[in-house]
């Protein structure tokens, strides 16, 4: 623990709030952290795990930028305490590409489709899309729009993102990873 971290922890202890030990798996790696109980999963992913690919857009569960997979299910990481992730298996955007850097078909498809612009929302869209296609490998355009309606994008008007999902379906049907 660095001086900064131990100084912070001392101050946090002084608030009277609980400090908890939490263990979970992130992108396949077993992880243990000691944090204030009030820290959300997104706080811990970004600050303690230093995985900054998960973004915070609203912190009250509407924008969807912080969406990660918890035991394979899409979840708002801003609406979970890190403590609730005890023993769970978390996947973030950093965990999508293969170990050799090979892109996940959803990432590849979104690139091919010019899916995003500023891309701040993209981690949430990518994780929601991965979850959707895991559940329903061949969604209709309407199903895609419905499923992604929990994620806000301010740049694109969504069409390129929907197009990206449709391309991902094609890539995944083609059998290539």
């Amino acid at each position: 623990m660095t001086d900064t971290q131990s100084s912070r922890l001392a101050a946090e202890t002084a608030t009277g709030g609980s400090i908890v030990d939490v263990s979970f798996t992130v992108n396949g790696s077993a992880t243990s952290v000691t944090v204030e109980a009030r820290r959300t999963l997104s706080d811990v992913i970004r600050e303690d795990c230093e995985l900054t690919g998960t973004h915070l857009g609203c912190e009250h569960g509407v924008c969807g930028a912080c969406t990660v997979l918890v035991d394979g299910q899409p979840s708002r990481s801003c609406l979970m305490l890190a403590a609730q992730a005890e023993g769970r298996d978390i996947t973030t955007i950093e965990g999508l590409a293969g170990p050799d850097g090979e892109l996940h078909p959803v990432q590849q498809a979104m690139m091919d489709a010019h899916g995003f612009q500023c891309a701040f929302c993209s981690p949430g869209f990518l994780m929601s899309t991965v979850a959707l296609l895991d559940e329903n490998p061949d969604p209709t355009s309407e199903e895609i729009r419905e499923e992604l309606s929990g994620n806000l994008c301010r740049c694109t008007g969504y069409q390129s993102i929907v197009d990206g999902v449709e391309r991902a379906v094609k890539i995944m049907k083609g059998g290539s990873k």
Binding site: T4, G53, H55, S122
Partner: peptide, 24 residues
């Protein structure tokens, strides 16, 4: 042409201001 930016942005390697954490 495919976006050059996406190589980092779509794998979680973007660096937005919230991702900057100088020591202390």
């Amino acid at each position: 042409v495919k976006r050059v930016e996406d190589d980092r942005l779509l794998v979680g390697n973007g660096r937005y201001v919230a991702d900057v954490n100088p020591p202390g």
